[in-house]
Amino acid sequence: MGLIPNFKNIATRSPWIYRINAGSCNGCDVEMATTALIPRYDIERLGCQYCGSPKHADIVLISGPLTVRVKDAVLRMYEEIPDPKVTVAVGVCPISGGIFRESYAVLAPIDQYIPIDVNVPGCPPRPQAIIAGVAKAIAIWRERL
């Protein structure tokens, strides 16, 4: 039965990424787009690929403090992602609410509603930090396959 673990190792080389914007200020989203899209940080070489549909995703990047208005949509979207999946919270917003923490309109910390596996702090975090977060997420994902 040595074959299955082998296939699992291969499978971890193809993490597909989906971004959920839970009311972020867009700073983190720009940073995520930059991380993957510009030649300098090219994460396609890790096999990553942004996908348009939550049903294709393996690793979810969530940014933003989870505002009251998007809560239901975000939870529903999270449910749509097939197991095994890993969640990465990008920015300080999902951790504590960041600069929005005292607002009546935000529900941060986000892990009251969604299990978060990796936190990438920063406002916004550097691309290298996001890549490190994704790499951590891949290691966690390997355990869950």
Binding site: A11, R13, W16, P39, D42, E44, G47, D58
Partner: peptide, 23 residues
């Protein structure tokens, strides 16, 4: 001018999808 994925990436993708749940 990127490095790009490994040549076998599409095979990895197919194997990966085999481990995912169908909804």
């Amino acid at each position: 001018s990127r490095v790009g994925p490994p040549l076998l990436q599409p095979f990895f993708d197919i194997i990966k999808l085999g481990f995912k749940r169908t909804m």
